[in-house]
Each structure stands twice: as C-alpha cells, then as structure tokens.
C-alpha cells in the first residue's frame, strides 16, 4: 500500500512535468505567430466606428497592456504562467472580451461527454469481440467483422463521419447532423433537453465508435492470437479447463494489460479524431472551438484550448497508469 502511494506520487510529479512542458511548448509555438491580437481588435473596431486616430491610439495602448504584447517573450511567458495558475487565460479575440477560459469551459463538457461515452463503448465492445475473434479464429461472424474492421481502419475519421452525414442526413434523414441540441429546446435539466442532447450525439459518437471499435478489435485480436500460443494458455487448455474460463481469465485477462497501455497511448490520437468529428457535425465542443480560433487567428483561445487539452489527455493517461499495476501484478510499484 505504501509502495502504491509512492508510485502515485511519482506519477503525479511526472504528470505535472508533462503538463508544464506541453503547455509551455504550445505557448512558444503560438507566440511565433505573426498575427498581433492588438492589431486585429483595433482594425475591427476601426472598421466599425470609423477612425478617430487619438481614440484608436488609446485603445491600442490599453489592449497592449491587457495582452502584454510589448513585453519581451520571457516576461510574457512568466506572466502567462502567473495568470494561468489562477485560472486566467486572457480575453478571447473571437468573442472579445469574453475570457478564453469561459469559452473553453463551456465547450469542455460536450467533448468530454462525447469522448468518454465513445471510448468506453468502442474499447469494451472492441476488446471483447477482438478477444473472441483471436480465440475463435474460424468463426464466420467474427471473421467478417475483422474484414470490415480492416477496411475501416485505414480510413480517416473524417471520411467515416462524412459517410454517416450522407447516409443519415441526406439519403435517410432520421438523425440531426449538426449542433449539440435542437435550437427549440431550452438548455436545462429537463427531459426534452437531455433527450435532444443524446439524439444529437448519436452520429458524432457513432463515427468515433466505428473507427475506435475497429482499432481496438484488431489490436486485441492480434494480441490474443499471440497470447493463445503462450504456454499458460496451452497448458490450461490441455488440462481441460473450461473454454469460457480460458478465454476470459487466461486470454483476454492477459491481453487487457497491453490493451490498456495501448489505450493510454492512443488517447492523443482519439482526441485529434474528435476535432474533426466535431467540425463535421458542428458539435459545440473543444474541437470546433479550436478550429474557429485557428481560423480567427485567436492566439489566446488557441493556447487556452491547447492547454486544457494537454491537461485532459495527460490526466486521462495518468488515471490509466494508476490502474495498470492493479491489473498486472508484475508491474513493480516502486
């Protein structure tokens, strides 16, 4: 137990280091951008209200102070972290002067909800089917499923999402194809709203699940077809241990460990997948927000989304890491 505690502590430090490095990298990359947020706002205001040069100069100075654009890079960096630690990421450009963090927090639940549901679904179903597919290599249904998964695997998320839009949006219009909920229901804790949210999430989630299911199915099947040749499986089969027992407690149980690590490594990729999916379905999550921010040249918002994404992905990997030694007794928790 104490060992486990030290292990958690060590991983926590590692998490902090990864988050710091990731966000700092995002900071420096975004600050290479030639676009000046001050100029952008000034131009926008000038275009709307005509140009009183003095007023514009005032605005420019005020904004420069607000964004800290005149400071040298290292001071900007220190400023950024100072404000970051108290949860202030600066005002967004896209919806000036709404704080970027507010936009991010508004989008976050959508993405998290979509991701958690689709990962849980695709990972569980994919692994069970994949485990069976690896064990019963001659089963017709599982073989056909494998061929299908193989066909889907090399296709980017975008295409799958697009085909779903075509099928259920145009050819057989039974599903809403854009937005997070219907415009005619008021957001709130009502049955209508929740039903509408679920209804709208089906297609985006399906596109993530289809690809994710294929990947975890194939990964698990490959893993299992190696594990079935391991001595402990052969031996259990020889001893006449019941087949379901062998499949679940010997084969799938052992394959789960690397599959879980695999999931941790794939999380970043899955997150990238949502960016596209959300864009296709105009889903109001982090992905859409990021794309809009990039198109608007909104440095603050891009940085805010990236930071939260870094924290979310690193945090999820951290949680998986904590589960790992519980699943595999051989992992030394030192």
């Amino acid at each position: 137990m104490r060992d486990y505690f030290t292990f958690v502590l060590k991983r926590l430090l590692q998490l902090a280091a990864v988050v710091f490095a990731g966000i700092s990298a995002a900071f420096f990359i975004t600050h290479l951008s030639p676009i000046s947020p001050v100029d952008m706002i000034v131009n926008r205001v000038a275009a709307q209200s005509g140009g009183d040069p003095l007023a514009i100069q005032d605005l420019r100075d005020a904004l420069a102070a607000l964004f800290g654009t005149d400071l040298p890079l290292h001071e900007k960096f220190l400023n950024f972290w100072g404000r970051f630690l108290v949860g202030d990421l600066g005002p967004s450009l896209l919806a000036f002067p709404t704080p970027a963090i507010d936009l991010v927090m508004r989008a976050l639940p959508w993405t998290v909800g979509l991701l958690v549901t689709s990962i849980l679904l695709s990972w569980t179903i994919g692994n069970i089917l994949g485990g069976l597919g690896g064990y019963y290599q001659n089963n017709r249904f599982l073989k056909a499923f494998g061929v299908l998964a193989m066909g889907v695997q090399p296709i980017p998320y975008y295409i799958v999402a697009f085909l779903l839009v075509l099928l259920f949006g145009y050819f057989w219009p039974v599903m809403p194809i854009s937005g997070g909920f219907s415009i005619n229901v008021r957001p709130g804790f009502t049955f209508e709203f929740i039903a509408s949210v679920i209804h709208h999430s089906i297609l985006p989630a399906a596109s993530l699940v289809i690809v994710g299911l294929g990947i975890s199915f194939l990964g698990m099947r490959a893993m299992v077809s190696n594990i079935v040749t391991e001595d402990y499986v052969t031996y259990a089969e020889l001893a006449g241990v019941r087949t379901e027992r062998v499949v679940f407690f010997y084969v799938i149980r052992n394959a789960m460990v690397p599959q879980l690590t695999g999931l941790a490594m794939a999380l970043g990729g899955i997150f990238s997948g949502t960016i596209i999916t959300e864009q296709v379905f105009a889903y109001p999550g982090l992905g859409s927000l990021l794309v809009n921010a990039v198109n608007a040249g909104d440095t603050t918002l891009v940085l805010a989304v990236s930071s939260i994404a870094v924290i979310a992905v690193a945090g999820a990997i951290f949680v998986i890491d904590l589960i790992h030694p519980l699943l595999d007794p051989r992992v030394k928790v030192k």
Binding site: Y232, T234, Y235, L238, Y250, N254, L327, P329, R330
Partner: peptide
C-alpha cells in the same frame, strides 16, 4: 510441460 517457468497464468 517443457518450460514450466511459463505455464502458470502470470496475472
């Protein structure tokens, strides 16, 4: 079996 080191389920 030969190789009894690995015939027990490791997990």
């Amino acid at each position: 079996m030969q190789g009894s080191m690995s015939v027990l389920n490791p997990v």
